[in-house]
Every structure is written in C-alpha cells, then in structure tokens.
C-alpha cells in the first residue's frame, strides 16, 4: 500500500470508533423512529406496522401542532435574545478582566454541576408565594400580600434563560477572547470613542460567537420540556411536551415519532441555514 493510500485511510481508522458509536446510538435509533412514524397506534395492544401517512398528515396539517410549534419557536427566540442581552456584557467582562479570568470561568461553569431540574425548581423558592422575593417585598412593606409570579409563560422563559445563559456566555467569551485588544486601542487612537470602537470593531468581530451561542440556545430551548412542566401553568407547553404526552401519556408512539421528527427537521433547517452562512467552526470552538 502506498504512503498516500495509507495516509488517506488513517483518518477513517481514527474516526471509526466515533462513527460506529454515532451510527449505532444515533442513526439506528433515528431510523427506528422514522419507521415507527409510519405505523398506526392501537388503543390497546401492539401498534399496527405498515406504511401509513396518518401521523404525518396530522403533524403537518393540524392547527394544534402548528400553533404549539410556532409558540415553541417564539419562546426559544425570546429566550435567545434574553440570553444574548444578558450574556454579552458578562462575556465581555470576563474576556477583558485581568488575572481572575479563570475564577470567573469556573463560576460560569458551576451551574453545570447542578442538575438542570434542581436549577429550574430553585425558582419556586425564589418566586413562590412564600418564596424569597415575596418575603423581601413584604418585609420591606412594598406589598401587603404576596404577588403570584410563578406558573406562566414569563417564568418558563426565565427558567430557560437561567438554563441557557452559560452556553451563550461561553460562546461569546471564546469569540471575544480571540480578538486582539490592540485593535480597539488603534481605533481610539484614530479618534473613535470607546463606544464607537466597541460598535465598529469589537462587536462585528464577536458576531460569530454571538451567532453560535444564539443557535445553541435556540436549539436547546426549542427541545426542552422540563421547564414548562415545572414553571408553566396549565396551558403552557412547548412542542417537546406534546411529544412526551403522545409517547408517554397517550402511548401513541407512532404519532410521537412523527412529532419528534418534525421538530428535528425544523431545527435541522435552522442549523443548516446557520451552517450555510456562518459555518460550524465557531460553534465547535464555543463548545470546546
């Protein structure tokens, strides 16, 4: 075998374990889901195998699923914007801090050590009728009765923002950290104010990080179902909740499979658009 042929094979040999794992743990289960989505649910007993389009027809034409899907995208978009607005200053501060950058980064990573559900439930102790915020407001005499703050769409967005903010900060930080600070100094030496230097130099250069964080927050947010269950009211649901209900509560695995694939396709299109214009390299850096 020639050296060229051996070198051409080497990456594939090195990639083989990872590709095998991805094939067995991701592609094969996904294929099962695809097959299942064409089956029909049986009220009791085994589902009916075959090639039926009923589930796809329901998923694509039923207003109920379309409305919840659009609402899911709306909630994810609002959450992503909130994460960007809160995350950018924090990431900027960490990137520009001298000496204690590592401590700040560790603090940023700390929430990942605590269960997502516990973090979500912590808001009940903060915003509940007998929670910390109401206790403070009442002890200061600002309100006489506790304010009902929990169990609505706003608290769902709050919980999601809490969950996703570190992903946004990390991505922006990676982008900002790679920008040469002397560029800002050069801009100010040429007459720009600090604000103008930021707007015209730093911000455009950090946009790939912002976009990568935005994509990550949006995709993770759109796929969540715990937050609406814990912090939402009776009506609040995201698309993943419908998937959960179809599969778990209604035991309608075929419809649940079609719904989960629909969500996957919608999010896949968004990732494809991102990749087309910005590429995945920045995302990999942010996750790395």
């Amino acid at each position: 075998m020639s050296i060229e042929a051996r070198e051409a094979r080497q990456p594939w040999i090195l990639l083989a374990p990872a590709l095998t794992a991805i094939f067995l743990l991701l592609i094969v289960p996904l294929l099962f889901i695809v097959v299942y989505s064409f089956w029909l649910r049986s009220a009791v007993g085994a589902d009916t195998p075959g090639f039926f389009l009923d589930n796809w027809k329901a998923a694509l034409t039923d207003r109920f699923y379309r409305d919840i899907l659009l609402n899911t995208l709306k909630i994810s978009a609002i959450t992503t914007i909130a994460c960007a607005l809160l995350g950018y200053p924090a990431a900027y501060f960490i990137a520009r801090s001298q000496g204690n950058k590592m401590i700040l980064l560790i603090m940023l990573m700390l929430p990942f050590w605590i269960s997502y559900i516990i973090r979500t439930m912590s808001w009940i102790n903060i915003l509940g009728v007998s929670g910390a915020l109401n206790s403070v407001l009442m002890s200061l005499g600002i309100v006489s009765e506790p304010i009902q703050m929990l169990y609505n769409e706003t608290t769902v967005i709050l919980g999601l923002t809490h969950f996703l903010l570190p992903f946004m900060v990390l991505n922006i930080f990676v982008s900002l950290d790679g920008i040469d600070t002397s560029l800002e100094d050069a801009a100010t030496s040429l007459g720009a104010t600090r604000w103008q230097a930021f707007l015209q130099v730093t911000l455009p250069l950090s946009l790939p990080g912002l976009a990568a964080g935005g994509l990550l927050c949006f995709v993770l947010g759109a796929g969540t179902y715990i937050t609406p269950v814990v912090l939402g009211g009776p009506r609040d649901a995201m698309f993943a909740n419908l998937v959960f209900e179809a599969i778990i509560r209604q035991l309608n695995w075929p419809l649940g499979s079609a719904l989960s694939l629909l969500l996957l396709m919608v999010l896949g299109v968004l990732v494809a658009i991102y990749n087309r214009y910005l590429g995945m390299a920045q995302l990999a850096k942010g996750l790395g």
């Binding site: 649910r41 109920f64 009776p234 009506r235 649901a237 209900e245 209604q250 309608n252």
Partner: peptide
C-alpha cells in the same frame, strides 16, 4: 375508561392547551 382512553387522552392534551 380503557375503551375511551385513546380519544379522551388526546382530546385532553388539546383542551389543556386552550382548544
């Protein structure tokens, strides 16, 4: 109840969400 499960559980999901 089991005879009505398929229809009622699915309808409840919709009613819960405002339908």
């Amino acid at each position: 109840w089991n005879g009505n499960e398929a229809k009622w559980s699915e309808t409840f999901s919709r009613v819960q969400r405002g339908y």
